[in-house]
Amino acid sequence: MIRFLEFAGRPLVFFVEECGRIMLLLLSTISWMFRPPFRIRVIFKQMEFVGVNSVIVVMITGAFTGMVLALQTYHGFRMFGGESLVGSTVALSMTRELGPVFTALMVTGRVGSAMAAELGTMKVTEQIDALNTMSVNPIQYLVMPRIIAAILMLPVLTIISDFVGIVGGYFVGVNLLKINSGIFIAKIIDIVDLEDIFNGLIKAAFFGLILSLIGCYKGISTIGGAEGVGRATTQSVVLSSVLIFISDYFLTAVMF
């Protein structure tokens, strides 16, 4: 019995501790956010990395998501003559769910993993210690700009993805499947609320927080050389993706 408790308990204790450490990192990031010096340039650099450099990947994902959605829902709706709803279905799915979630997953793969790898390398090669010796707080200098950049950039990427997805859906629906373009757009305007878009963007900002926080956390807690860096990278992607899906459920439950 005791052996069983130990067996079951250790991962549980580890999990609770891990949650605690991530929360502490978040808290201290927030507390460092308001202390000078404010390194705007460093934040901009991260914004470029997280936002500008991800835009192509996000656009491609968004466009094809919208196109596939249009194709799939078209066949479903045609069964009872509801082809006119394809547009609004695509738009609603993109703005509420697929835009934010797919963007977050792509950015996790591209940026979250890079954060873990970069900070992990800095950790094992003592660069983070070096920052400390120069009286520069690594959380303020490394973690905070990344988190701010991700929180700000994810909504921007998401709105682009939403838009491109709807345009992709329009292309498939109107040009290939010959749905009337006026009805296609009118139904979107009719059914999609501004709130759907905004809630999607709030979600995206939240996902940005998750993926950057996890990436940074896994990075700065890396131990064990190059192998450790690899492990941290993988774990950060897996953990972020899982958390994005879980939190998506709860955010949806709260918002809609």
Binding site: T121, M122, T125, E126, Q127, D129, A130
Partner: peptide, 8 residues
């Protein structure tokens, strides 16, 4: 630092 720890 022993391994210099330059920011790469």
């Amino acid at each position: 630092f022993q391994d210099a720890a330059l920011f790469d």
